[in-house]
Computed example of a mutant assay.
Amino acid sequence: MIRFGIIGYGKMGQTRHQAVLRNGTGEVVAIHGFPGDPVPEALAVASPEAILHDPSIDAVHVCTVNAFNKDLTIAALKAGKHVFCEKPPAFNAAEMREVRAVEARAGRVLMYGFNHRHHGAAVRMKEIVEGGEFGRVLWMRGRYGKSVDENYLSTWRADPVLAGGGILIDQGIHMLDLFLHLGGDFDEVQAMVSHLYWNTPGIEDNVFAQFRNSRTGCVASLHSTMIQWRHLFALEVFMERGYMVLNGLKTGSGTYGAEQLVVARNRSVAPAATWEQESSQTWDADESWDREALAFAGWIRTGRPGPAAGDSLGALRVMELIDRIYATERHTAPRLYKRLNAEADQLEGV
């Protein structure tokens, strides 16, 4: 029986707790919450240290604001705990390399919450890519957007010191991870980062980015936005002998619509494929949280990560792309992000 501690009991802390309970992957024995978190009284502890220094706790879920992810992950690893940390893993690739150095010495499982890999449609897409029937991935196009209102500006996500950035590091990071998960790495990046509507310094509301692997030629295009006005998730993957088009994402709120995956084989005579030749599958339930909980527990028990487990190398690759997106945008002052990261480093421990 794996004994879990949870640091942070907002939406994600509660989600992880419920997944452990549903799947019987272990027992949550201690929770440290922040002001306003509805921590069950019987499990409440006064500080993160109460969890980190408890020798009976095997694994820790880090479910805090972005600014604390790196430091708490490092502290937990040094304390001998297995760690599951929500995204983003850090504010930049340099911080992620710090984490990996500690991980290498700790010899413990470190998994990151790139939850979208575990959605039913994404699992199926990975199986198709790995199966090789449709050949190699040629190009991908991802659009991921949500709508926010003025209330968003009063949350920690609109504070660059706590969040580390805007819609890219908040939500677009999931699409970047799926690009890497399905299509391999990228060494060329072009990007435009915009403040089209909300005009909040350090919190971009739109990112337009393109990526290319110069060795394979695979290209990917991303639009990440918080002024979509109607929530949207769409991912297209085109291969040598077929394609996959995912529209919608099954979530608890239902705001991204049905999770529908269309798959078709290419034909040799144009038009290569017709609507009638497509097959469609829809997922009516979101089982991603359960899959993720089982993957973390399985990795701890066996010492081997599953095919969709978000490891630290994948997290580093994502952060390297995010660094390059922010760095290539001429309208974003690099000094601003450098200062914000420095301020986050100076935050006192939780």
Rank of each mutant, 00 (worst) to 15 (best):
V263Q: 10
A272N: 07
A293D: 15
I325G: 05
P35W: 11
Y144T: 05
G164H: 05
A79S: 11
F68K: 08
A264I: 14
F68I: 02
I57E: 11
R16L: 12
P40S: 11
G26A: 10
F208M: 15
E278T: 06
F84I: 02
F186V: 12
L232W: 04
H116L: 14
A158Y: 04
Q260T: 15
L232R: 06
W139V: 06
G257C: 03
Q281G: 07
D149Y: 04
L168M: 12
V350T: 04
L138N: 12
R124E: 15
L246T: 00
L77H: 00
P334W: 05
I51D: 08
M111H: 10
I2S: 12
D323F: 01
G172Q: 07
N247Q: 08
L235G: 01
E49F: 00
F296C: 09
V83Y: 09
R339P: 03
N266E: 13
M192N: 11
E348N: 09
S268F: 06
A163F: 00
Q190Y: 02
M96P: 01
L77G: 05
N199G: 02
K11L: 15
L138H: 11
V161I: 09
M140K: 03
Y197N: 13
T25I: 12
S280C: 11
G172W: 00
V193C: 10
G135F: 04
N151D: 15
I7C: 03
D311T: 03
I74S: 02
Q346F: 01
E348L: 07
I203L: 08
R265A: 13
M175R: 05
K250N: 12
I325D: 08
L138C: 06
V60F: 06
F68N: 13
E329F: 00
R16K: 13
R136A: 15
S312A: 09
N115P: 00
H181L: 14
L153A: 08
T302R: 13
E188I: 02
G164F: 03
Q346M: 13
N92C: 09
I227W: 05
R136I: 10
G254P: 01
W139D: 13
P48M: 15
S194P: 01
L182A: 09
V193I: 04
T216I: 10
R141E: 14
V189D: 10
P38E: 14
M244P: 01
D323K: 01
L313K: 07
I51G: 00
V148I: 12
P271E: 13
R105E: 15
F114L: 13
Y326F: 10
G242I: 11
N69T: 12
